[in-house]
């Protein structure tokens, strides 16, 4: 596959992250990095700590130990909205759309961080406020075109089928023009056609917008096809890291997936 943007420097580096809930150790001493423009997969059996890892990266969980470096800035912890402001967007394993709002409004919420018109202009819906609204609407319409969801623009998302909801959620994340996009099982529960569509969107996003993507996925075929590098977690520890081919051959990974008698 020919890509327009080559993989670049390190964008995000997680270092020795340890996270526990009470007595449950969710992550212990996990370190890896994500490079610019790459598609990085995080895989592992159920309960391996994959979602917790994403939650740590975008500030929803605060690790007890370790640090995260994003765009050269090192931090111990921050609030989710700060992470969003720095350019990290994500989708969720269980769809987390705003069910009472239309597709268009949902995707528009992704633009909120970039809107800053004066309260008084908003009251009157004139001047900068209206121009800003129209400008962002235009951007959102590009995303709607890109994801091919024009026909459901004004439909409340609660009424949409699962596959489309997943797509709208991707749209909302894209609307924020993130530098790092975290996708938590973007293809869970989809049929083959929907999966193919979603793969195409992910590759296109990576290629056209140059967005760096970290994704969790259970479908190994998809992971091997899409990703540049793969991290494998098991019981909260990193057991392998490297290209899909490399990871596939690791004995520990095979053990984790097939089970092994100790």
């Amino acid at each position: 596959m020919q890509r327009t943007r080559p993989v670049g420097d390190v964008l995000l580096k997680v270092d020795d992250i340890t996270l526990s809930f009470g007595g449950v150790q969710a992550l212990s001493g996990v370190s890896f990095d994500i490079r610019k423009h790459e598609i990085r997969a995080i895989i592992g059996p159920n309960g391996a700590g994959k979602s917790s890892m994403l939650n740590v990266i975008n500030g929803f969980y605060h690790p007890q130990q370790g640090q995260i470096t994003f765009k050269g800035q090192t931090r111990k912890q921050m609030r989710p909205h700060e992470a969003a402001a720095q350019g990290i967007a994500r989708t969720f394993q269980n769809i987390a759309l705003f069910r009472g709002m239309s597709t268009l409004d949902n995707i528009m919420t992704g633009r909120l961080l970039k809107m800053r018109s004066n309260f008084l202009f908003q009251l009157a819906w004139t001047g900068p406020a209206e121009q800003e609204e129209t400008r962002h609407r235009e951007f959102v319409e590009h995303i709607i075109d890109f994801l091919e969801i024009q026909s459901i623009r004004k439909t409340p998302v609660g009424q949409l089928p699962y596959g489309l909801q997943k797509r709208v959620e991707l749209g909302r994340a894209l609307a924020a023009e993130p530098e790092l996009l975290l996708l938590d099982e973007p293809m869970a529960g989809m049929n083959v056609e929907e999966k193919e569509d979603m793969c195409r969107f992910i590759l296109d996003v990576n290629d056209e917008f140059g967005t760096t993507i970290a994704l969790i996925e259970h479908d190994m075929g998809v992971v091997m096809d899409l990703s540049d590098r793969v991290v494998v977690l098991d019981y909260g520890r990193k057991i392998a890291d490297g290209t899909p081919d490399h990871v596939r051959g690791e004995q520990k990974v095979i053990d984790a997936y097939l089970g092994v008698s100790h």
Binding site: N58, P80, H81, A85, A96, F98, G110, R172, A173
Partner: peptide, 16 residues
């Protein structure tokens, strides 16, 4: 409305 429908998701997409 984002806060109303799902406050956690709202915070994650950058709403304070």
């Amino acid at each position: 409305m984002a806060i109303r429908d799902m406050d956690i998701a709202a915070e994650i997409i950058g709403i304070r």
